[in-house]
Design a binder for these strands. Structure first.
Length: 227
DNA sequence: GGCCAGGACACCA
DNA sequence: TGGTGTCATGGC
């Protein structure tokens, strides 16, 4: 019987954390510098980070388009809209009732912390800001790190399904290892460079989307050559 | 018609 | 503390 698992990265290479820099170099050589995250403004990036929870980005794009058409892509607008109206606008992103509530909680947080002024929010240090974000209902570690890195430009490495999928098969850590364990490995191994953190995660996503979803597409992955 | 996609949380043993 | 169910749409 044919396995449903991607054939990419089935080989256990016992990848060491120090090799992560080499992996990045290999991916960047193939894909070039990525301009991530998709979003016209930091606020839009934050909204997208919540909408994309367990959802393909193509669906999130439709929800964001709805918000844009309704002129709801601003703190003031989202703070004023009812949860029911918001849920209908973000319906294409799935889990719309859950995500409408999470967006509402996040707007409350922004109001409480900085009255919606992101330049004020950015003044806080990364660890403090991360702790505050994680205390918001509906903001878990991945969403918090995406907001920190891509919207607020703080050095916080993002671990997502793609990262675990690719690197667990190279023996870096068990896929079931905790989020913080994965994050610690990357944070320890890489120089504390904002652009590197940003682009590294983008490269992983680009690689996974291109080669790790369906079995036939795994052939030709640049990581196969690297290992 | 079934599977899958850039999580997080509540509940329970 | 870890496992499990739930939330939901839309493309393939």
């Amino acid at each position: 019987m044919r396995s449903s698992k991607p054939i990419l990265c089935q080989k256990r290479s016992k990848l060491k954390p120090a090799q992560l820099a080499g992996v990045y170099a290999a991916l960047r050589k193939v894909f070039g510098h990525q301009n991530w995250w998709p979003g016209e403004t930091p606020f839009e990036v934050m909204v997208g980070a919540i909408l994309t929870q367990n959802t393909a980005w193509t669906h999130v794009e439709k929800a964001i388009l709805n918000l844009r058409k309704a002129k709801m892509l601003s703190f003031a607008a989202l703070r004023s809209i009812s949860q029911k109206e918001l849920a209908q606008l973000i319906r294409p992103a799935g889990y719309f009732n859950v995500k409408a509530d999470r967006l509402r909680c996040f707007m409350e947080f922004l109001d409480r912390e900085c009255c919606g002024d992101l330049t004020l929010l950015k003044r806080a240090g990364m660890p403090v800001l991360r702790k505050k974000l994680l205390a918001v209902k509906g903001i878990g570690p991945e969403t918090a790190d995406s907001i920190l890195l891509y919207a607020l430009r703080k050095r916080s490495f993002v671990i997502d399904t793609y990262t675990r999928r690719i690197f667990s098969r190279h023996g870096l850590a068990p896929e079931q290892a905790s989020y913080e364990t994965w994050r610690e490995i990357f944070t320890q191994a890489l120089p504390p460079d904002l652009d590197l953190f940003n682009d590294y995660h983008a490269q992983i996503a680009r690689t996974a989307k291109a080669y790790c979803r369906k079995v036939p597409q795994c052939e030709g992955c640049p990581l196969n050559r690297y290992f």
